[in-house]
Design a protein around this nucleic acid. Structure first.
Lengths: 210, 210
DNA sequence: CAAATTTTTGACCGGTTGGACAAACGTTAG
DNA sequence: CTAACGTTTGTCCAACCGGTCAAAAATTTG
């Protein structure tokens, strides 16, 4: 097999490309793709625009590279959802891991949200392919738990959606969450509060115990 | 009291301004503020760019007007949440109304999401003022229900967040939802499925009944 | 060292964008 | 009819943006 089209990279290439991707993540996630300029990214990366374009020849290339990396790590928690172990515990852990990702990687979450909001023009094939396959697979795992009476019967797909929605909300709508909670409760503790609340919601719902 | 600074408007002014706002909602909600051009909005409204600028002197003025209108209708369901009636029913109705809004006004939802995602630069005062006041007030209503043993004790603020997140998800992440559900289940029925699922989630959680 | 290669930069370009402006057009009231 | 007023448009501009290019600077290689 021939050496494919993957360009060979020097040490500097690798380092600078990382620098640019880090800067681009910051800029893209707060301004969106069209709202961000190459100059902004270059300045955030501490280099001139033509220099940046030496490492990524087009603005879209940066975004694409960023997106490819993101998707792998972003779906890792769902991939880990496994049939071994207690179902309720397994789901609780999935929710916790997703919430930790919203806390630790809010920029990645916003980058993804931005892309989806605008109709996912650049990652549509991946949504209909890789993502759908993964979700269908995990939905079947959850269906098995329901048939075994381990968790209540409900729609597994919408269950997954609701976990995505509630956890990513703390990254994507962070400013709103902090504004509403106020300076007292909007501090670092809000993720622990959210974790406690979500666990209770997903396990027991709102019906009083009696 | 003197006639305040509100400009007087002719019939045509009122009609054309509506036309522009409708077109701008369409364009802004799919491309974001910076991603939208005055030309796009003008074309969607069926007029020339200078003509549009005769009715709104700056691009930002359109966005601001749109945002002000949005916020009133957007928070209406929460305002209706009332102390009269059965708490669980009241919450169930709130969730249903919010989900209907995600179904019937997805553009408004995306416009709002776009603004929050970018750090809410134009509506921050409203989040810390009007919105926080309203949410605090309703959180106290919910707290009353908890004290009375009508619903399980939990964090009312995060409860409200979770309702926002799960319902708006079906507007903001619509393309992802449809891609994952596929052509069979991603059709018009998805909102009924979501309504059923969310009701069960919020009332009973996932713990099996036995 | 010197040659070869990689990296960095300033200057530049064509296209787009938000917005200004004056002139043309249409409408209405006297 | 005509003057006044409201509406529409073609033209123009300065700023911005993505991207090119050639040449300079730095680094690696022999």
């Amino acid at each position: 097999m021939v050496e494919s089209s993957a360009p060979r990279r020097t040490r500097i290439q690798l380092e600078k490309r990382e620098l640019i991707l880090e800067a681009a993540l910051e800029v893209f996630s707060t301004n969106g793709f069209r709202g961000s300029t190459i100059d902004q990214i270059a300045e955030a990366a501490g280099m001139s625009k033509p220099n940046l374009l030496y490492y990524f020849r087009r603005k879209e290339d940066i975004h694409e590279t960023l997106m490819q990396r993101l998707l792998d790590t972003w779906l890792a928690p769902l991939r880990e959802l496994d049939d071994i172990g207690d179902p309720l515990t397994e789901l609780r852990n999935y929710i916790r891991r997703k919430l930790e990702m919203a806390r630790d990687f809010p920029r990645e979450s916003r980058l993804f949200a931005n892309e989806i909001l605008q109709g996912a023009p650049r990652i549509m094939p991946m949504l209909e392919g890789e993502l759908k396959t993964l979700v269908d697979e995990k939905a079947n795992v959850i269906k098995g738990w329901m048939r075994a009476g381990k968790i209540a019967r409900t729609d597994p797909w919408h269950l997954i959606f609701s976990i995505w929605a509630t956890t990513q909300h703390y990254a994507d709508f962070d400013v709103q969450v902090r504004a509403v909670l106020g300076p007292d409760r909007g501090g670092d503790g809000r993720f622990e509060d959210a974790a406690r609340f979500l666990e209770q919601l997903f396990i027991d719902g709102l019906k009083p115990k009696n």
